[in-house]
Design a protein around this nucleic acid. Structure first.
Length: 567
RNA sequence: UGGGGCGUCGUCAAGCGGCAAAGACACAGGAUUUUGAUUCCUGCAUUCGGAGGUUCGAAUCCUCCCGCCCCAGCCA
């Protein structure tokens, strides 16, 4: 039922579950669930939870993981999000089979449980205004006061709750509260609201309900109804666990799942809350939920990340209870690792510099054979057209190179990948700006394919593309969205948007790629040799050219060396 | 200042009274290389937030201290 993922390391949750299996606590069953609220797109933090929940279930013969939408707040939730969430979970490689559920599936049963609670004297209708409710709640260090409505009779509560359900009251007039303890040091136990009036249509139940259950009431009961054994959630719900347990203890429920909390994922140089991601989308700071710079699953997909790379990343970061900030370099390692094996190699020049090979015949074109993957011959090969005028990367030429630079420069010989050795003879500059606009070279016909029969060596191999045959493309280079490792951690009045990296996107519109890249499809991934991994985008440039997104650069020790030299 | 958590390498993270304190990423060297990529070696915590204590023996148990996170939605 689950995607292939390497054997995963142990963590405290697996330890607990293994122990439960050993003691036959749930008849050997392991039932988890992934319970998103459909109020936004899934992000990499959700991927951690998905991999955990589906992953654990997948490790046991009697393991199951449900997909359950926690749709108890119709004013925030949308069908668009539900569809996107399902697509993302599937894309990640997980299968909920026939176990797609919604908290809203249980509204009737939840209502009956609420009635049961009232009948047992464990819940009451409170008619305090929201402001008064807040005032009565007390503070972190002072106990709250009992609501004046706390001792209404069971009959009156039953009547009022029935009328709430019938839509007889406006929003805010009443609320159903659990009758626990207004003096509890745990705020969640100070008679929390469990049903509120909302005259809002629900995307699945329509106008059937004018009241909706709160998270604390709906979640534990949904878990119990589904026979969940281990209810995994993030740390901020730890204080809710006593309430989770209290509700299940009062009621006649099928089972009592165990809630276990773990730390949520924080990734450096990005933000992870749905609210903040929504701000980025609404303010058009990014191009939508699937902007390749977004830490959403949809964003990573469009960026060219593979499901396996994200799953491997989630395995590597582990599961623990301490707050942490994972280095984005680990994610980058995970995608390089996967694409290095799978991505076919191609040549593409993103900042073209014209090279004329003076001793190469004017009208000649050759077809050169080039493997699609140097380490995997079984992937086959393609041919590369070669001619007198080619493009190389601007960065691969320097008129006055520093000592460590061993690419092309005046008088120097280098290899063109899978083609010929060329030697730089002359530099052509723009008369006014002094900018190098073309380079003249000679080639050695004896070096066809890239080997010299006389055994002479060159220090560098450059990627190139035949000027007459290249296709033009738009390439989008992405960098981290934020310039600060933790955008949430600004000084006094700062806002996370203050740290947006102004250079997070660079669009190159005149890139020259080997012709074979013309017949590729959106979503296809490649390595452009010496540059990085790129993924064909779904869009087309304003000029009608294909668009490629840079997923991640190759590891680059040259940049480090050159920076060191300049420092 | 009430309650609940958490503190092991630059970053994640194993470890649950007896290890020279896993592993990964990052980093630094070196080898191989028609990608300054990949691959391959090598190095990288005498120390587990601090101080005491228990014990033959402590990262693991106890005490105190310090630091960080969460909770006062009719959000989830």
């Amino acid at each position: 039922m689950n995607a292939e993922t390497p054997p995963s390391p142990s963590n405290f949750i697996k330890t607990i579950i293994a122990e439960d299996i050993k003691t036959n606590k749930n008849d050997g069953r392991v039932a988890t669930r992934f319970p998103p609220e459909p109020n936004g797109y899934l992000h990499i933090g959700h991927a951690k939870s998905i991999c955990l929940n589906f992953g654990i279930a997948g490790e046991y013969e009697k393991g199951t993981c449900n997909l359950r939408f926690d749709d108890t707040n119709p004013s925030k939730e949308e069908v668009e999000y539900m569809e996107a969430i399902k697509a993302d979970v599937r894309w990640l490689g997980f299968d909920w089979e026939d176990r797609l559920y919604h908290a809203s599936d249980y509204f009737d049963r939840l209502y009956a449980y609420a009635v049961e609670l009232i009948q047992k004297g464990k819940a009451y209708v409170c008619s305090l205004s929201p402001e008064d409710t807040k005032a009565y709640r007390g503070t972190l260090q002072e106990p709250g006061k009992d609501s004046p409505y706390r001792n209404r009779s069971v009959d009156e509560n039953l009547d009022l709750f029935a009328r709430m359900r019938n839509g007889e009251f406006p929003e805010g007039a009443h609320v159903l509260r659990a009758r626990i303890n207004m003096a509890s040091p745990n705020m969640n136990m100070r008679d929390p609201a469990i049903y509120r009036i909302r005259h809002v249509a629900h995307n699945r139940t329509g106008d059937a309900w004018p009241i909706y259950p709160m998270y604390d009431f709906a979640h534990c009961l949904s878990d119990a109804i589904e026979g969940i054994t281990h209810s995994l959630c993030t740390l901020e719900f730890e204080d809710h666990r006593p309430l989770y347990d209290w509700i299940l203890d009062q009621l006649d429920v099928p089972c009592h799942p165990q809630q276990i909390e773990f730390a949520r994922l924080n990734l450096s140089y990005t933000v992870m809350s749905k609210r903040k991601l929504q701000v980025l989308v609404e303010r058009n700071i990014v191009d939508g939920w699937d902007d390749p710079r977004m830490p959403t699953i949809a964003g990573f997909r469009r960026r060219g990340y593979t499901p396996a790379s994200i799953r491997n990343f989630c395995e590597r970061i582990g599961i623990a209870r301490r707050d942490s900030m994972v280095d984005v370099a680990l994610l980058e390692f995970s995608i390089r690792e996967d694409l290095n094996e799978k991505a076919p190699r191609h040549l593409g020049v993103i900042r073209p510099l014209k090279v004329v090979i003076d001793n190469y015949p004017e009208n000649r074109t050759e077809e050169l054979d080039a493997p699609l993957h140097p380490n995997h011959p079984e992937m086959g090969s393609r041919t590369l057209p070669f001619s007198r005028e080619i493009y190389i990367e601007k960065d691969d030429f320097m008129e006055n190179p520093p000592s460590k630079f061993y690419r092309l420069s005046p008088g120097r010989e280098v290899r063109l990948r899978y083609a010929y050795f060329i030697k730089c003879e002359k530099v052509v500059k723009d008369k006014t700006t002094g900018e190098v606009i073309a380079v003249h070279c000679t080639y050695d016909p004896e070096t066809r394919g890239g080997d010299s029969p006389d055994g002479r060596k060159v220090k560098a191999t450059l990627h190139w593309v035949s000027a007459a045959h290249a296709i033009t493309a738009e390439v989008r280079l992405y960098d981290r969205l934020f310039s600060k490792e933790n955008p949430d951690e600004g000084t006094d009045g700062s806002h996370f948007t203050d740290f947006i990296n102004p250079d997070s996107l660079e669009i190159l519109t005149d890139c020259k790629l080997e012709p074979g890249l013309a017949d590729t499809r959106p979503g296809d991934s490649f390595q452009f040799e010496r540059l990085g991994y790129f993924c064909r985008d779904k869009s087309v440039s304003p000029t009608g050219h294909p668009v490629f997104n840079r997923t991640v650069t190759l590891r680059d020790s040259w940049t480090k060396i050159s920076k060191k030299e300049n420092a």
